[in-house]
Design a binder for these strands. Structure first.
Lengths: 249, 249
DNA sequence: CGGGGTATTGACGCGCGTCAAACGCCGTGG
DNA sequence: CCACGGCGTTTGACGCGCGTCAATACCCCG
């Protein structure tokens, strides 16, 4: 059990924020940003730390600034399913709800930009820029969750692994406003167990399939947590759907 | 292949609408309702008809008034996964997006209250009552999708079947502002194949597990499309999670 | 060098998918 | 009235993919 002390990071101005253009605040004007500045504070967590326990009260919502976290559900007998990945610019928490429905765990070191709940909800009710962006992001998350349903319901273990790598590569590329292509490297800030929980597999199966993909030259491993994809299009084919990821241009 | 002509139903006033209190329009005031009245029209579909094809343009969004529809995704080799069920009061379509990402199929006869896209989006931008309710509903759908991830990733075939029946029973009871308890009957407007697509199973497995639950007295079948649950709590136990469904009171 | 957490690898079995046949229900037409 | 065909469903036989259990390897840190 890791110690669960989070420490305060130093405050940072919104106009130099790396996720400014994609986060919940993306559409806000200067006066709204000023409001947000007044209710925000940073928090950091180490890999493995629990950020929120399912069932606990939450007095904040937050944007992920850097790092990665997972939302997790459990059955009483302990079976675990990760139901969402939080990557930089993703939003954590639900306005209007105090009790967290899922446990949130940092899978890598992570920095959150937290907003005190009450003032945030107040601003949300005032600002169409804020609420509109939140709606947009929520609809995107819903689409992502539905893509995940297809993966969990119908894909083989190998296709699941390939799909996860494709998604991480797309998200990483999107931060640089690009699309992955040809040779591409991805950080994989997840243990085999976390991958298994996300993919609805066991960690043994994850390990076997990763090594199978490696043997066949579809991926290369640099250490355990970094993957080089020599031919991105080949990986997409392994993932089962060769849709283009839905992005225009 | 069923013929795909939808017919216009006669207009109906909002103040006698059966889903008035739960649909997107739930929080609207009389003047906003008047606006909505001006942009709305009813459409009906028979069981099996396709309402929207994935990839096609949609010039409307809609509320389900009665009946049931399924959102469906496919891999190129034909594997199919249902990624959402639309029940009365649920919302269909995404404001700001013209192209449908999923195929929508009526699983029973269904009546939609459609709104022309452009005027609806215009009103959405003006009315916090409308956009707030849509956000709320989208967040609820996201929660439902995440519960479904747990089901698809970690539950056994038997638990999946039981979970589906539990959900349908809860939704049916919720329309009457109740909670299912003790002896309870559910309509099951789905073929075995549609159930399989929703649960990530084959239709043979669905059939076998349904009959297993029947043999053991957990459910009773009245015809193929109506299920009597003699003891709702027992069914919940079979479903794997005995959470109370999250509703207060 | 030892210890704990993470990952790999192997042997084995079971749940569910696959393939195939038969059944029940219903509408149609002889 | 019954024969016929179509569709959804049931049931059976069989096999494979992935889960389970267990041993071993790896790696970082003291």
């Amino acid at each position: 059990m890791p110690h669960d002390l989070a420490f305060q990071s130093s405050q940072q101005a919104c106009d130099v924020c790396p996720i400014r253009s994609r986060a919940v605040c993306a559409h806000c004007e200067t006066d709204e940003l000023a409001d947000l500045e007044g209710m925000k504070y940073y928090r950091s967590f180490e890999a493995g730390q629990v950020i929120v326990w399912a069932g606990d009260g939450m007095d904040f919502v937050a944007s992920v600034v850097s790092g990665m976290a997972g939302l997790t559900q459990q059955l009483e007998d302990g079976r675990t399913q990760m139901v969402g990945l939080l990557l930089p610019s993703d939003f954590l928490g639900r306005p209007g709800r105090q009790i967290a429905p899922y446990t949130v765990t940092a899978t890598s070191e992570i920095v959150l930009c937290c907003f005190r709940r009450k003032p945030f909800e107040h601003l949300l009710a005032q600002s169409p820029h804020l609420s509109g962006r939140l709606l947009e992001m929520t609809l995107d998350e819903l689409d992502a969750a539905r893509d995940w349903l297809l993966l969990l319901g119908r894909k083989s273990a190998r296709e699941k692994i390939a799909s996860l790598l494709v998604i991480l590569a797309r998200r990483e590329a999107a931060l640089a406003r690009q699309r992955p292509k040809g040779r591409f490297a991805v950080e994989l800030p997840l243990t085999r167990e976390a991958m298994a929980d996300y993919l609805g597999l066991t960690l043994e199966t994850v390990s076997r399939q990763m090594n199978a993909l490696k043997r066949e030259g579809v991926i290369e491993l640099e250490g355990k947590r970094r993957v080089v994809i020599p031919d991105f299009e080949a990986l997409v084919i392994e993932s089962g759907d060769d849709s283009d990821g839905g992005l225009p241009s």
